[in-house]
Design a protein around this nucleic acid. Structure first.
Lengths: 200, 200
DNA sequence: CTATGGACGTGACAAAAGTCACGGATCGGT
DNA sequence: ACCGATCCGTGACTTTTGTCACGTCCATAG
């Protein structure tokens, strides 16, 4: 019997997957969690064989949950995501994730992947893997990512400078470097492309 | 037997809902569609009793699909959405939608709602309805919404002006009015709050 | 040791974005 | 017809953003 934990903030998909997996004779859904903190707590307590983790969750995201769980107990993690971006896959593999599945796949594949992961295999969805191969490493420095993250909500240079304790001119300079590297012309476009690529 | 069409661009939730609904003895899933155009075509051809439509889809969104379908055939529509915003509900009801359900609800409720809709009732999720009551009508004019939509991707004033055939000054003036009405200080923040409220 | 290169920080300058006051068009109400 | 209200469009004016040239610090290689 494979003991499975499911974590997804979207109630409908969480309950649907749980209901379908319960129909499988060899799979036992031992926990359903609506956010990352709950998932970590439940995983450490129940030590399931496999964790099925949504990437986009409030608080801790799926990769962060996987990192904490695999470090503490002998549980293997599958990350499920809506938008499968190369950067995210890299981050996931570095954090001890054993499986990676986009939500574009059918629900019927989930049980099959769970069985393979439980058997000790790794499973990376072929489409995501293909994307990741045409390597798009993030060209931005740590500081530039700080700037981009700080200004994600459309804040002004002054506000960003204050939160990072910098001179406004410095922020503008970093932004300028970011725009050049990403080949765009406004900071809003920079935020969009960086989010698209999974860099922030 | 209630004949149901399902449309959702996310394959996993689409197939999961379809599989669960097929388990119900009185429900027959006659079509699964991945985008709005497919959904309209299938609905006009098959004339299902109930359409289960995701709001967020490429091309036509769920409300647009419902509008076209209810205008042409005797089919009742349920819109499912991830983020249930007041503006969207208003728009949905004005377009002939009979049911409205957020994805935060469990999958087990879907079958029950389908039965009620098929029986001629309307069903609006209580939580969404409560949000809609504290009326937040969009304060922006049509033209201002055009501007906001055009500039959603961080384009410059010049680009927006060109796509809308306006002088750059006019665009700036509209933007200024938008910022005042939404009580924000950059157009990026304006886009975020308008999207948040479901106005664009 | 030094020099070469990268990341970070800063201030002066040009080009945008945002503000303001104004004119014209349209639509109801009187 | 008149008035008021509202929306659209425009150009002058100020503030913010983006660009550039420069200096510092730190690591690594010669």
């Amino acid at each position: 019997m494979i003991r499975v934990l499911i974590a997804d903030d979207e109630g409908m998909i969480r309950s649907a997957l749980a209901a379908l997996l319960r129909l499988e004779p060899d799979i036992d859904v031992v926990a359903e969690c609506a956010d990352g903190e709950q998932a970590v707590a439940a995983a450490l307590r129940l030590e399931p064989d496999v964790c099925l983790l949504d990437l986009e969750m409030p608080g801790l995201d799926g990769v962060e949950v996987a990192e904490r769980v695999t470090r503490a107990v002998a549980t293997r993690c599958i990350v499920i995501t809506r938008h499968a971006r190369p950067g995210v896959l890299r981050r996931a593999l570095a954090s001890g994730v054993s499986g990676f599945l986009p939500k574009s796949r059918g629900a019927d594949e989930v049980a099959a992947v769970i069985r393979r992961i439980a058997a000790g295999e790794r499973y990376i969805d072929s489409e995501v893997a293909a994307d990741a191969l045409r390597d798009e490493r993030c060209p931005l420095t740590d500081r530039e990512l700080d700037i981009l993250r700080a200004g994600r909500r459309g804040e002004t240079t002054g506000q960003i400078a204050r939160t990072l304790s910098l001179a406004p001119g410095t922020v503008r300079n970093h932004v300028s470097a970011i725009l050049a590297k990403l080949a765009v012309s406004t900071r809003q476009q920079a935020v969009l492309t960086a989010e698209e690529a999974g860099w922030i």
